[in-house]
Every structure is written in C-alpha cells, then in structure tokens.
Design a protein around this nucleic acid. Structure first.
Length: 460
RNA sequence: GGCGACGUAGCCAAGUGGUCUAAGGCGGGGGUCUGCAAAACCCCUAUCGCCGGUUCGAAUCCGGCCGUCGCCUCCA
C-alpha cells in the first residue's frame, strides 16, 4: 500500500524490511479523561493496523503512556493523590473507551516511569557524542548539533526562533534547545541520575521506548498532527543523533485534528467532549463510521447532527446483512446465481491501498450493500456478498452485527405484535397503527412483510 | 510575524489535467411495494470560494484576492 509520509511530504509504497511492520504510535498523557479527538486518532491507527494485518503483515504496535509530566504532577497535588494514582486512573479510562471502540490493543504499552533507566542511557550517550549538555541539574539537547533539525516540520531553526515564542532558559545554549532531563523540585517525583535527582523531559520517553521495544529504525511512527512539532521533530533529533542511523522511522503518519466549533478539541483549550460521553450517546460503531467517513489526514469537525446521520448510514449497512426470512433456506441454495462481491472488494482494496482512503472504501461498501439489497429483490443469492461485506467492515473495525442488548422486553414486544396482527386481520387498522406508532416512539421499529412482521431496536 | 493546510451539492465528504455531463452517506422531492407505514429498490437533487493565466482540454497546474483552520507553547 501507499502511505503519506510527513517527512518527505509524499505518498510512498510501504515496504517493510521483513514481514513485520514496526509501528509506534504516540499515546496520551493521562491527566484527564480521553476525549473524542483521542478516540478518532486511535481509530485511524487501528484501521491502519487492521489493514496491514489484512494484507498479511504482522504488526508490532507499541504505544506509550507519558505518565509523568508537569500537568500530572500539578493535578495530583491539587487532588491530594500521587501522580501514579492519577495517571493510572486515566489510563484505565483510556482503555475503557478504546476497548469499547473496538481498538485492538497494542503489543506493548510502556509507561514512562518504568523506562527511566533506558532514558538515562540515551541521555548519557547523547552527552558523550556532544549532542547534549548538562546545565545545573537539567540536561538539554543541543539543537545546533543536529543539522537536519526542522526537517519534519519543514522549517528552519532560525524561522522558528523568529516566532520568539520559544521558551528561553537561562542555561540553554540556544533558545531551541529542549530538556532531556529536568532537575527535580521538592515534592515532585524524581529519579537518581548522573546529573542529580530529576525526571525525564517530554520527548525522551518515546525515543527510549521505541528503541527498546522496536529497535533503531521503525516502519511507521504515528500520532496527531499537533505532535509534528516539537515532539516528533525532537524525537528524530534525539534518536538519530544517538543511533547515527537515519531515518528513525520510514514513515511519519499524522492524522488531522478533530475540531469542536471552530477550534481543535484540546485539553488546554478545554473544549472537550469525552470519549465516554460520545460513546454513551452514539455507540462505538456509529462513532467509528463518523471518523472513517473522512480521510484520516483531514481535519474533522465534531458535530452531533453529522454523527447521528452516520448512525442512519450504519443502519443501512446492517440492513444489507439481515437475512431474508421470506426465503426458506432451500431457496437460498448455493447453485443459485450469487451476487458477485469481487468488483466491490477490489474497489475497497484500491481505496485502502491509496493512503488509507476510507471514505472511498466505504463508498464501495455502500454500493455493495445496495447490490445485495437489489439482488435480494430479484431473487439472487446474497450470502456470499454478505460475507464479503462483513469481512470488509471487519477490516475497518466496524461491527455490523446488532449489538447485544437486554432481551427481557422481547416477550412483551412479541405479544404486542401478535395483538397488532390480530387487529390487522380484523381490519382494525387504526388500533393496529396506534400500537405500531407507540412502539416506534419507544424505539422499536416494525417492518411488515408477507411472511410476518419483523421488529428491531433502532439506533446503535 | 514565520511555516503549512484547506475552501466541492441543503449538510458531511471523496476525487487533484481528459472516462468529472464530480463517488458515497445524510437530508429533500417523485415513483414501485404496502391496508397505511417501515425497510428496500428506481428516478431527480453541484460545474467544484472569487479573479486572471497555462493548456487542444482544469474542480484538478500557476499567480493574485477573500475566507477558514493547524503548527511555531502543553496537546491525539
């Protein structure tokens, strides 16, 4: 498949060194509940992984938790809990939401606090090579020592400084230098180091973890577009300066950001909708379909109206998978002319091969759904096509089977349906329609056919 | 101020030189089916922000303008 690479700014053929794709995706800093923007980002990388696996690759997927940072410490102090307790709480929240979304678990989820020794090795190595220097308990990366600095963000060091919003530390040689290690402050968690007690800077954990769990060169390094600079830029500098090998990652994949209103959804702006709330309101499949309806690199605006519209679209896909009760199994025999899913399958693959074009892939699936419905009406066999549709949905992580639900009301609904059937037989249509209308008002949709009445819960 | 995206139907969203008289979804209109509905199927619902240029040919390339957003600071 072809995948867009932020560093080279073009789509390139993804050819892993061997059959295993090494993929590192930046995880969250767990100091607050995961929001819908996180959900979207990880759905995209989940689909990337699923498609690669569908293509036959093994994917070794590593994702970190940055469980030590200024905000975690601050929040923990405010709440009177330990930073670890706070982080674990939101890590649990993260898994909760992502599991509900059907995001496959990564191969490993290293936590920054458990990787400090490897970070110290890395920092020492950088100092030894002249790429970093200690300064009163801190250690900074010497940006000027890495000539490719700025390549990922496609900008030059001078241009960045010109913006003058760079934090100027008195001990820094260059305003663009960034902290690898921060001297400990009283009351904060700290680890012993050759430069005194302290804690890691923001970017170093990802370098250390990817080195440890995936090796010196990755196939794909991913994250939200807001991580391009400075986070990924700094990771490249640290890692390549340390290993002397480039590229650190063959592909840099960044998803567009989710916006709420006019601005991006972000913790610091406070314009959040939590992943949990969105899941409670719309369900995982609808939300996933909403995300995949746009291309992963394009920004997407959170809109309840548009998500609800995707819920109706999801019903359309699910409808195509419902078996035709009207036709007894004997009629649906294999010898019958079957709807051929192959052209749709091909369109799906072509779309996914082209930088994960999920909107186009979905279009092929909707067309296949129509073909199934059409085939059903003309008496053709659709089981093969339905199996194909289910398979393609699976590649996108979409569950098209009806969600498990409480069945305790079923006997009563069936009873009402029986009453209504009797009323219809007696041509008491007003009463019959009243029963139907009331059921619809309760979220139970009825469909009459020559073979009887089918009902289902709408939504989800 | 610097760097970079984007602007396609009522809404969302693909397409990025000719097959586009522009995919798909939602919504809307008309029809078939139905006691009526629902679901499904069929038909209809855009000339691609504006202006100029390149080209035999542009939504697709170039320039200008207007508008929106992102990054340059913690952030998926």
């Amino acid at each position: 498949m072809r995948l867009y690479d932020t560093l080279t700014a073009q789509k390139c053929e993804l050819v892993p060194a061997d059959n295993t794709v090494k993929m590192y995706v930046c995880g969250v800093t767990p100091y607050s509940p995961s929001h819908v923007g996180h959900a979207m980002s990880y759905v995209y990388f989940d689909v990337l992984r699923r498609y690669l696996e569908y293509l036959g690759y093994d994917v070794r997927h590593v994702q970190n938790f940055t469980d030590i940072d200024d905000k975690i410490i601050l929040r923990a102090q405010q709440e009177g809990v330990t930073p670890t307790a706070l982080a674990e709480r939101y890590i649990a929240d993260y898994f909760d939401s992502m599991d509900r979304l059907g995001i496959q678990r990564a191969s490993a989820y290293p936590r920054a606090t458990e990787e400090v020794p490897w970070m110290l090795d890395l920092i020492s190595g950088l100092i030894a090579k002249g790429h970093a220097y200690p300064a009163s308990g801190d250690v900074y990366f010497r940006v000027a020592s890495f000539e490719r600095y700025g390549a990922l963000g496609h900008r030059k060091l001078d241009e960045m400084i010109a913006g003058a919003r760079v934090e100027r530390g008195a001990q820094k040689e260059h305003p663009g230098d960034f902290a690898l290690w921060k001297a400990g402050k009283p009351g904060e968690p700290s680890w012993d180091s050759p430069w005194g007690p302290g804690r890691p800077g923001w970017h170093i954990e990802c370098s250390a973890m990817s080195l440890r769990y995936l090796g010196e060169q990755l196939d794909i390094h991913g994250g939200g577009h807001d991580l391009v600079f400075p986070h990924h830029e700094n990771e490249i500098a640290q890692t390549e300066a340390y290993t002397g090998k480039a590229p650190f990652s063959r592909f840099w994949a960044h998803n567009g950001l989710l916006t709420l209103g006019a601005e991006k959804m972000s913790k610091s702006l406070g314009n959040l909708v939590s992943a949990k709330d969105a899941l409670d309101k719309f369900g995982p499949a609808t939300l996933r379909l909403f995300f995949l309806g746009g291309h992963y690199r394009a920004p997407l605006a959170y809109s309840e109206e548009n998500i609800e519209a995707q819920g109706r679209a999801l019903e359309r896909l699910r409808g195509a998978l419902r078996s035709e009760e009207s036709a007894p199994p004997s009629v649906l025999n294999q010898s019958k002319d079957q709807v051929d899913p192959e052209p749709f399958h091909q369109r799906f693959s072509d779309a996914m091969d082209d930088d994960l074009n999920t909107p186009q892939a979905l279009a092929a699936m909707f067309d296949l759904a129509r073909e199934i419905n059409r085939g059903r009406e003309t008496g053709r066999g659709v089981t093969v096509a339905q199996a194909a549709l289910t398979e393609l949905a699976g590649v996108l992580g979409l569950k098209l089977t009806e969600e498990k639900r409480d069945a305790s009301a079923d006997p009563f609904i069936d009873l009402l349906l029986q009453v209504r059937a009797d009323l219809r037989t007696a041509k008491q249509y007003q009463l019959a329609d009243s029963v139907r209308d009331r059921l619809v008002a309760l979220g139970v949709s009825l469909e009459d056919s020559a073979q009887g009445t089918r009902w289902r819960y709408v939504g989800r």
